[in-house]
Computed example of a mutant assay.
Amino acid sequence: MTHQLPPPRRILVAGVSGAGKTTLCREVARRSGIPHTEIDALFHGPGWTPRPEFAAEVKCLAAQDAWVTEWQYDAARPLLAEHADRLLWLDFPFWAVTFPRVVRRTVRRSLCREVLWNGNREAPLRSILTDPEHILRWALVTRHVYRERIPALARTTPPLRMVGLHSSREARAWLAATWPHRPGAAD
């Protein structure tokens, strides 16, 4: 007989820009009933300025019994990792999957002038030429950081169970295996 671990209650989702962190967080929340807190909404104030309440709100989030959020922002990563029981690493092929996703999302948000967190909007597409922190440039520059961060986290936070997911298919399979029946769904 194999021993199956109980489903996680405090879940981090890691990955580069465009990997699908927030999408996976929302799906975990939908299937599990665990609340999703979008970390970008806690971090970004009007004008893309960091919110002064960010650290205190992350501390409150980490202390809750159950949550799912994205593993972002240096000020939040250590505290969230210390309290999480599972980290899902979306380690998808960058050029085939992640970069096309971030391009589509950025173009849609920019052209539609989509309102994001606290009234912010995606930068105009033309600013990619002048803004070193434009999301498309950021995605390119930071595409390898998790290959260093995840092994370091495994060394410093051994109780945190980590799951590497290398495709959308693997992510769906992990979800189905972890929560085969959604709360409130007909059996």
Results as ranks from 00 to 15, higher is better:
Asp40Gly: 12
Ala29Asp: 04
Leu129Ala: 15
Arg101Lys: 11
Arg9Trp: 01
Ile39Thr: 08
Pro132Thr: 06
Phe92Asp: 00
His144Leu: 06
Pro159Trp: 10
Gln4Trp: 04
Ala176Phe: 03
Val16Cys: 14
Pro124Ala: 14
Arg10His: 04
Pro78Gly: 08
Ala171Pro: 05
Cys25His: 04
Ser110Lys: 10
Val97Pro: 00
Trp179Glu: 03
Glu82Val: 05
Ile11Lys: 03
Glu27Trp: 01
Pro93Tyr: 06
Thr98Lys: 02
His181Asp: 05
Thr157Val: 14
Val13Leu: 01
Pro180Leu: 10
Asp187Met: 04
Lys21Glu: 05
Arg147Tyr: 05
Thr130Tyr: 04
Val97Ser: 12
Glu114Gln: 15
Val102Arg: 00
Arg108Glu: 05
His83Ser: 13
Trp67Lys: 07
Pro46Leu: 08
Lys21Gly: 02
Arg113Pro: 00
Arg9Ala: 10
Leu125Glu: 05
Glu27Lys: 09
Gln4Leu: 12
Leu5Arg: 15
Cys112Lys: 13
Ser127His: 12
Arg121Cys: 14
Phe94Asn: 04
Pro50Thr: 09
Asn120Pro: 02
Met162Arg: 14
Gly119Asp: 07
Phe54Leu: 07
Glu82Arg: 14
Arg51Ile: 00
Pro151Ser: 12
Trp48Met: 00
Arg31Ala: 13
Cys112Thr: 15
Ala177Trp: 03
Glu57Gln: 15
Glu38Gln: 10
Gly45Arg: 03
Ser167Thr: 14
Pro93Val: 06
Arg143Asn: 08
Ser32Met: 08
Thr157Trp: 03
Arg169Val: 08
Arg105Val: 11
His166Gly: 11
Ala63Asn: 14
Ile34Trp: 02
Leu175Arg: 03
Leu87Gly: 04
Leu125Ser: 06
Ala176Leu: 11
Pro158Val: 08
Leu116Glu: 13
Cys112Gln: 15
Ser32Val: 06
Arg172Leu: 13
Leu79Tyr: 03
Trp174Ile: 07
Trp138Ile: 00
Asp40Gln: 11
Pro159Ile: 10
Asp65Met: 05
Val163Glu: 14
Leu160Gly: 10
Gly18Trp: 01
Glu57Leu: 14
Asp85His: 07
Ala139Cys: 12
Asp40Arg: 04
Leu125Cys: 08
Arg182Leu: 11
Arg147Cys: 02
Val97Trp: 04
His144Val: 00
Leu125Gly: 05
Ala139Phe: 04
Thr98Asp: 04
Pro78His: 06
Pro158Gln: 10
Arg137Glu: 01
Pro93Arg: 13
Val58Trp: 00
Arg105Ala: 01
Leu136Trp: 02
Ala14His: 05
Gly18Thr: 09
Val68Ala: 06
